[in-house]
Design a binder for these strands. Structure first.
Lengths: 267, 267
DNA sequence: CCATCTTGTATTATTTATAATACATGTATT
DNA sequence: AATACATGTATTATAAATAATACAAGATGG
């Protein structure tokens, strides 16, 4: 029961475009609370579509609870802060940290198998082509709302030291270090992508929604790749927070991440 | 001339879904080079659409140069590594750094005005409601390809110390510090969003494309907000790279950003 | 050479989205 | 009360996407 998927979503292009655009503007804060929305005619003109199309987009927004339409008065935004922004990435543990109390996170294992490492994984981890890896896909859920879709690749030898059940309950980091792996460095790359049919269903969002994409390669002290993570996060449920401080003097003045200072109330 | 906008994009829902899904799989590396693509009939069955629809998606991919169709042989992926990934965020300067040689970046000023700070900006910067700010929107371009769409909010008093022309040429950081502003800390929040009609045109991408979204609040030594940045980045042209190292011992073991070690060949 | 795969091309019908209108009704302002 | 503007509703026509089908032509392997 989240925006997007739940009700009948206007599958067609234009209405969908209007819907998604307005939805993002609302959750962004660009459209604040109150009676802000322009009239349907005005919106139609602004988007270059007919009023019927705008209407369908607004109906979907209304069904999603993001706006409130009153008969002759107008349409006002019900920002409700998306009831989310519940999680943020913590630099100390590289794990999502729930900033609100009472929110627990559970994981659901979607698939689990051993097979040859895809080329891009093998290349990123520095494995031999065709080396066997464990491939696991799981979804993390908080308050019945899924917020991340994670696929991990771990060399088969290392992965044998923990079980399938371990994966569903324990963070992969802990499992690896428990197995005696000496984790030394990691490299993360953050980007954005669109939700495909499969991921959209798992994350309970509309196909074509924007997702935060994170790829992480973890290496041990010998420089061998021990984990490749490909994660997709719902932007309304997850953000990457980066506190930074300006240090140094003169020409050496530069930015440094201010770690260990995660603002608890930053959500 | 980049994927998405350039040619005739299949506006309709189904064909677009197939197109975007395949495009992401290609740029992700999930579909590697060679003659990998299943036949059109197989794709049609797999996506649950007709062959005509798959066909249009493939035509668009072909126009974008991502695949190569041969008459009776099949369709092979031309990964070409998106010819991009040219820029990455540098932690030291908080500015995009071009990792390939010979690429220069220019800026185009889209709009420039002084007006009241929007609520969410005033709140984030800690300004009085309705305080006047300078609002500037500009697009950064490298090799004729736009890769970022930036909107900055600067308190009017501070903004008066530099000109409109300065903005088009000099990074805002330099302008601020030149004005005697004592920059102390910043907070960045990274997420993802969809390209609206306006941004899509400016960045030469299709409406509804995924964009990396970055919001940054910069404060001076007194804790006053001096800059609010809302940036949208093309994921095929820009990534946020984060090298990390595992430090500390025992229970104090944690991650720390490995700054100043940006891998030049990381793109 | 032949069987069988592939992409290329064409036709047709169905479904759906969209647009253009008109009018009724609720709300608020003057 | 009158006016203006908002949403609610309905109708009709146009445009577009999609599906289903058939067949031609190139490529490949036996």
């Amino acid at each position: 029961m989240q925006p997007g998927q739940s009700v009948q979503l206007p599958e067609g292009a234009k209405a969908r475009r209007v819907y998604l655009s307005l939805r993002d503007q609302i959750s962004d804060g660009r459209l604040p609370d109150g009676e802000n929305l322009p009239g349907e005619q005005r919106l139609a003109a602004s988007f270059g579509v007919s009023r019927v199309t705008v209407r369908r987009a607004l109906d979907a927004l209304s069904d999603a609870g993001l706006i409130e339409k009153r008969a002759g008065s107008g349409t006002k935004v019900r920002a409700q802060n998306m009831a989310g922004k519940a999680a943020a990435m913590d630099f100390n543990t590289l794990m999502p940290q729930l900033v609100e109390m009472g929110h627990s996170t559970t994981a659901r294992l979607l698939s689990f198998s051993y097979s040859q490492a895809p080329d891009f994984v093998a290349q990123a981890m520095g494995l031999a082509a065709g080396e066997k890896v464990q491939i696991a896909t799981r979804v993390r859920i908080t308050d019945d709302i899924p917020f991340s879709h994670l696929t991990t690749y771990v060399p088969a030898e290392i992965a044998q030291s923990y079980s399938e059940d371990d994966l569903a309950t324990t963070p992969l980091f802990k499992l690896l270090e428990r197995s005696g792996v000496q984790i030394e460095e990691a490299h993360q790359s953050v980007s954005a992508t669109l939700a495909g049919p499969d991921v959209a269903e798992a994350l309970d969002v509309a196909v074509g929604s924007a997702l935060l994409s994170l790829k992480r390669v973890v290496r041990d002290v010998d420089g061998n790749g021990v984990e490749y993570l490909s994660g997709l996060y719902r932007p309304d449920m997850f953000r990457l927070e980066m506190p930074l401080s300006r240090v140094g003097q003169g020409s050496a003045r530069h930015w440094e991440p201010a770690i260990g200072q995660m603002d608890e109330a930053s959500g």
